[in-house]
């Protein structure tokens, strides 16, 4: 992985419609290689839809996503798959294939439909399994894994693509705290190598600590975009989430701890 494989992702006025309803409305931002961008917001804010729209997995009603000037939608599916690894929210694995085989699927965009994995594919798969910490159970069937193990096996699959962009939809959702921290550190490492990581998160503490910048969404719109301290300011949290949080700092790192609900009357009075 060489630094600077991706310069800039520009999301330009993306809207996504589901039926007559717009679930994402005119979202624009720019993200750079080398950063972890967190996509946060309450349930139904349109985070997952936006992520899918960037990855060209759902049709857009408007807008486009360009990487260093190149429209992602104009690329062939295979070429796009080499530029952008996508980790979906569910943990779907329909056959009890081994963890190693599962991780190796991340190499599909790099080989022909009939070609066997090359030594380079093998090495990338090994790297991904090591980074995701699944080498210890590489031969176990995916169906026999715990929720956390399976989530990491699927993360290994996404890492094996070795694309300059990683889009992950709630990658820590079913993990215990140890592995949540581990996966977030992994996201940081990936970004440190020059890649762009966009990650949908519900955990504001993790978002505040591990993301360079946050895109806060609410009702399909981008409410705020910027460094965590600005994006998760008390006013923003009240507006987006209807919560108040404890803000603090420890060892030079900032944390946000959701503390109480704010209902309508209280907000109007404050």
């Amino acid at each position: 992985m060489t630094a600077g494989r991706i310069g800039c992702l520009s999301v330009e006025g993306i809207s996504v419609a589901r039926g007559a309803r717009r679930v994402v409305e005119d979202v624009s931002f720019e993200a750079r290689g080398g950063e972890v961008l967190g996509l946060v917001g309450p349930n139904g804010a349109g985070k997952s839809s936006l992520l899918r729209a960037i990855a060209c997995l759902v049709p857009r009603a408007a807008g486009r996503a360009r990487v260093d000037g190149e429209d992602l939608a104009a690329l062939s599916p295979r070429e796009r798959a080499r530029r952008l690894a996508f980790l979906p929210q569910g943990h779907e694995v329909n056959w009890p294939i081994s963890v190693e085989r599962l991780a190796g699927l991340g190499r599909l965009p790099h080989r022909g439909p009939l070609a066997a994995p090359s030594p380079a594919d093998r090495e990338a798969t090994e790297r991904a399994m090591r980074r995701a910490g699944v080498k210890g159970f590489r031969d176990r069937p995916a169906s026999g894994l715990s929720g956390g193990e399976r989530a990491r096996a699927l993360l290994a699959r996404a890492l094996a693509v070795e694309a300059p962009m990683l889009l992950a939809d709630e990658p820590v959702a079913s993990l215990d705290p140890y592995h949540q921290l581990r996966v977030m550190e992994l996201m940081r490492e990936t970004a440190a190598a020059g890649d762009l990581v966009i990650v949908v998160l519900h955990d504001l503490a993790l978002a505040a600590r591990f993301c360079d910048r946050l895109a806060v969404m609410g009702a399909g719109r981008l409410l705020a975009f910027g460094p965590p301290e600005a994006a998760l300011s008390p006013d923003r949290l009240a507006e987006a989430y209807r919560i108040g949080a404890l803000h603090g700092e420890r060892d030079g790192e900032r944390f946000v701890l959701p503390w109480r609900r704010i209902d309508g009357a209280e907000r109007a009075g404050s």
Binding site: R52, L57, R82, E92, L108, L114
Partner: peptide, 24 residues
């Protein structure tokens, strides 16, 4: 059928993951 093998394998991860791996 034999040529569809890798697509079938990607489909075992669900539609979205398969498409994100470049499978048409």
């Amino acid at each position: 059928l034999v040529a569809s093998g890798s697509a079938l394998e990607a489909m075992s991860l669900g539609e979205e993951a398969a498409r994100s791996l470049g499978v048409a």
